[in-house]
Amino acid sequence: MSSEPGTGAAAVDERRRSLPDRLRVDIFAVWPVAVMILIIVTTALRSSRYLTVFNFENILSQIAPLGIVTMGQAVLLISGGLDLSVGYNIALSSIVTGLLLEHGYPLWLAIAAGVGAATGVGFCNGVLVAQNRAHPFIITLGVSIFLFGLDTQLTGGAPVNDMKGLYTAFGGNLPAGFPFFGLPSLAIPFVIVVLLAFAFLRWTPLGRRAYAIGGNEEAAYLSGIPVKRTKIYLYTIMGAIVGLAGMCLAGEINEASFNLAQNFELESIACAVIGGTALFGGRGGAFRSLQGVALWGIVLNAIVFAGLSSNYQQMALGAIIVVAVMVTRAQR
């Protein structure tokens, strides 16, 4: 953003940047892909069962709910915000839907209520963040703790174990007769959300305003952007995305419970950051964040193929997050 007059001394004219400089930026942007290729090649050489359609379908369905949330989280991060309530908000949407299904309400009504509940929470997050000078970190953390209590209260701690039609829809692969038949059904909402996030950030005024607010909120305000209203819109959209992820996750594993999506808030932030989205706003994108999600899924899966315990998954992911942050800083 161009808010600071008089930064002439520090400014560098684009034309004066040397060619290696420009190439380095591109290497920074694609490093997750390079690491992915490295992991895929080494794992494929070690195991003949690795490079199969079945395995990659498995990765895809495993990563789809987190990937959907990551797209929304990336948009919020770009706007200088974030949402720590996604884990228990996903749980809330699944619980609302699950309880309604349990009481015999039709599927469409249960889904509408579940997604609606999550969207409502997103709207509340937006209003609280917009009206408050406190950082969204602490506001959405508070909402998250509130939701944890609400989720446990609604279920009495016991999960809903039959998601009925939702399980039929998202629990398996696309049936014969569908386009892309055989693919995990979760791939459909995932791909749609990624494309929508890309289009949103590139072609909508709201997406452009997200970049402007994240780049420099003061400058965005002075440029006549309705900062508060924009934030409310963005958090509400995040709520709807979270609701969709809740339907996907609950359908996939046929369960609704308060711990359905534990750690999703931090994992979605991590995926977006691995993909090069700036933690404090202004930079990032849908496809870049998708790279982070893909690397996440590939690493989780490769560790299983290496015969290592899930403890190593956590260690590897932790290391990748630290490297990602260092790479993003070096890129500046």
Binding site: S2, D13, E14, R15, R17
Partner: peptide, 22 residues
């Protein structure tokens, strides 16, 4: 405004050119 293209980030411009963008 002196800039290599309209795709250049504004922060890479000189102070005077940033001012002109404003």
């Amino acid at each position: 405004i002196t800039t290599s293209s309209v795709d250049t980030p504004v922060r890479n411009l000189s102070g005077g050119n940033q001012q002109k963008v404003l």
